[in-house]
Design a protein around this nucleic acid. Structure first.
Lengths: 216, 216
DNA sequence: CGATTTAGCTACTCTGGAGTAACCCTACGC
DNA sequence: GCGTAGGGTTACTCCAGAGTAGCTAAATCG
């Protein structure tokens, strides 16, 4: 019996699943800092510590690779939110936790956020994916608002719900962008401010109060 | 020479200023529908009814051309707002008119909007310009909010003002994106809904009312 | 009515980077 | 101890598209 030393993991020759994940992480970083076009497959391969043909062998074309990045980061974003929202909570608590999850993701994954929003929403083949993702969020938010309004005994007007949800999602994206550029800022603090800003207004509006132009 | 074949259906030799403007308008359209990278100088020249070297002769490189588009559309956007806001009005009226101007521009210049936001904010050399434009808007909005709060006798907390302004600008951009994809929607209606959504909330928040988590 | 200036063209060059062909190497199964 | 499969590489091909050289011709001027 030989003293069978468990084959020490050399730095080379890793199993496919591991390499694929390394490549994806590298790609997200490069796409985030260069943008889709300026990112070259050579640089991505280099960042992953591998050669270009391996990237093609495992992940396919540049478009395929980018789509994989978008899907991965989009999934992570959604999971960050889903993980903290509980169905049995009142709507305002759900929204609050959703915002915490959202800003938590952005704070911890600034590259992922940049890939998803600064890059993917501007490039035609992928913009549709992001629009769909945003659409799902809008639906979720609108649902929360709807339940909140109904729970308070008021009447829910669908167009107002959708418009409010769009405004809220946009406000969150804007604050997220600001957060991505201010590493010292606290994600939870941003979440709290936005919660305050939107909830008070949404509540009043959806209960029927209206701002009226005082002239013309 | 018998059948001399200049055969140019080209109608006229136009003065430089006119051609430049045609090229800019064409470039905005092509950039908007293809994106910066996928837009080729050939297609832009074609859209303008002119040949490529003319574009280079008048507007310079592709980057120069795109920057010219961004500047033109950015200026138009700002002017749409400035044109309707009056300094002597109360802050809520100013905000209301500003939103009307903003959504009026987006409704009437969907290509310009797409160039400014969907394209320019994602491409590195130009993102800074857009960030600056957005920064000016945030400052303006924060100023309106500040005056409104002071006028109502409350105390203005700067971080809240800035955060609210970011949220409001982001909400407006989001609704504008939605508007750009829904040609049948009425810009004024969008402006009114957003005004309602934000004003009621901002007013309460800035006067000190806070939403509080009901649990942990 | 020549000279000059300005609008305009065709037909190139050249480069960055996506994608690939063809080969190498080592662990493992038998 | 050897065949093979899968992880890995170098060194290409090829093309779209930015940018240019160098020409023609219509206005304008003196």
């Amino acid at each position: 019996m030989l003293a069978s030393v468990p084959s020490r993991p050399t730095f080379k020759r890793l199993p496919r699943a591991v390499r694929e994940q390394q490549m994806l992480e590298a790609a997200v970083r490069v796409f985030a800092r260069r943008g889709f076009h300026a990112a070259s497959m050579d640089e991505i391969a280099d960042e992953a510590g591998i050669s270009k043909p391996m990237v093609y062998a495992y992940l396919g074309s540049k478009d395929d690779l980018f789509r994989a990045c978008v899907n991965q980061e989009g999934t992570r974003l959604l999971e960050s939110i889903v993980a903290v929202v509980r169905d049995d909570l009142p709507a305002d608590e759900q929204l609050w936790r959703g915002l915490q999850g959202f800003f938590g993701f952005v704070g911890a994954h600034r590259e992922g956020w940049a890939v998803l929003y600064r890059q993917a929403s501007a490039r035609e083949p992928f913009a549709a994916d992001i629009a769909a993702l945003r659409g799902r969020m809008v639906e979720v938010i609108a649902g929360m608002l709807r339940r909140a309004v109904l729970a308070s005994g008021a009447e829910a007007r669908e167009p107002d719900l959708t418009a409010s949800a769009y405004a809220l999602v946009g406000a969150a994206e804007s604050v997220a962008d600001w957060l991505a550029d201010h590493p010292e800022a606290d994600p939870d603090h941003s979440a709290a401010r936005l919660m305050n800003f939107t909830w008070l207004g949404a509540r009043q509006l959806l209960q029927g109060e209206l701002w009226q132009p005082s002239s013309a």
